[in-house]
Design a protein around this nucleic acid. Sequence first.
DNA 1: CGACTCATTGAGCGAAGTCAACGTCCGTGG
DNA 2: CCACGGACGTTGACTTCGCTCAATGAGTCG
Lengths: 254, 254
Amino acid sequence: MRYNSDSAMRLFVDRLAERTPLGEDEIRAFRSLEGQTSLARANVDIVTPGESTTYACLIVEGLAGRFGQVIDGRRQITALHIAGDMCDLHSVVLPKVSWALQALSSTVILRIKHRDILQVAEDFPRVAQAFWRDCAVDASILSQWVVNLGRRDAPARMAHLLCEMAVRMENSGLGLRGEFKLEASQTQLGDALGLTSIHVNRTFKLLRDNRLITTEGRTVRICNWQALARLGDFDEDYLYAGRGDAYRRALRAS
Amino acid sequence: MRYNSDSAMRLFVDRLAERTPLGEDEIRAFRSLEGQTSLARANVDIVTPGESTTYACLIVEGLAGRFGQVIDGRRQITALHIAGDMCDLHSVVLPKVSWALQALSSTVILRIKHRDILQVAEDFPRVAQAFWRDCAVDASILSQWVVNLGRRDAPARMAHLLCEMAVRMENSGLGLRGEFKLEASQTQLGDALGLTSIHVNRTFKLLRDNRLITTEGRTVRICNWQALARLGDFDEDYLYAGRGDAYRRALRAS
DNA sequence: CGACTCATTGAGCGAAGTCAACGTCCGTGG
DNA sequence: CCACGGACGTTGACTTCGCTCAATGAGTCG
């Protein structure tokens, strides 16, 4: 099968370059990395826990989640990844993983060899720094999830997640913060929010009843961004997602 | 004041070198980094949110926590750091922070300039990789905290935290997993566990009543490691902290 | 058509929060 | 020296948020 993995690669490199100034040759070196695309259907593991991986996964299309496991079978999603995300870049330096990577909806991924990534990082210190920084942003998001789970009730938690995904999608040109598709079932959202699917449903209803959002299938429309962000106590700084014009122009040009 | 910051530096470098083979000159280059020590009393901010830091903090002695803030004044600790931890190494690549770093008990820290750290990383690719890897381990721990907060009830959550701190302390030679000092108040533990101090107290009582632990002041003794680890569903792999060969083999894949 | 997944809603329960009181330890100042 | 205040730990009574169990409907695929 052939997927347009170029666009995802461009998204990823743009994001790196936005946060870490990279020269022409550095970008070229990185973009020349080869990989294999493959399709994973919803609820299929891409990486299984305990595995020693030899490649990192770039999302080309769809939605994937990193899952932590609890002994009784319940699951907790620790990260959501959209197109353009290198979802397990950290596995380059820690290849033995203790989590699962799973497609939440039909997802196309591009597997890039650790060895190749390490080589580029070794040849170009700035690229190494860009990788390190990307992992740090990932950790920053993870920190916010800890806060979200630890100290916010269900409506605030959900509001925060919706705001986060809205901004991330918009920044990757995959939607607008006012309207975007969140390709996850309520059960999967529950796994991300530390709630049951039933409570996710009720919380959705609450947000709809308060005219903060509307939903249509899996499309979410945020009717009142201000109010939703206030409810979720959302401040997008932690995403380090440049809303700079330069970035957007660059995207549009390509 | 003069503190023995050498021992903390040694702890940190040992940990790096344990996970990333470093040459003599690389270790020497790193250990030659200079810093300023200072003392922070309990509940005093070392780094304040919104700050743009120019240095990273190595804990020489004591206990520090990274705090996320919620609008209503409640707090959530997203990471605990003990002696030998470079608690905000990621700020080297993301200097504008959105969290607070606070001493939980009297804590001595060594501030090392970002500029110097970046220089060593640029000169020695393996050192850069070691930093990247250290941040990845930090993120791995963060992931486990997400799982802990999202999918475990209070007793399991607490058991998991106790096991984690026990292993980390033992691995840094600051205690034994069977007995160690956890220099945090029950309120602070609540901030880490997403519980109220009152519920932390009740949960402590529960663990004591079940003869899993005993406490004496802030010294925790784990009487039944097996049972506590089972209750907390604790598997130490995610800490990448073994001194044994197993984990070194796991890393060798890279 | 049947089997399946997913969304929706109700009823009852339980884990954790809130509010409140009290004891201990410790530092500080009259 | 003791009195006072503050931080911390402990415990009880009551409330509430989110979970469990259960039933139903809507959409989809073979």
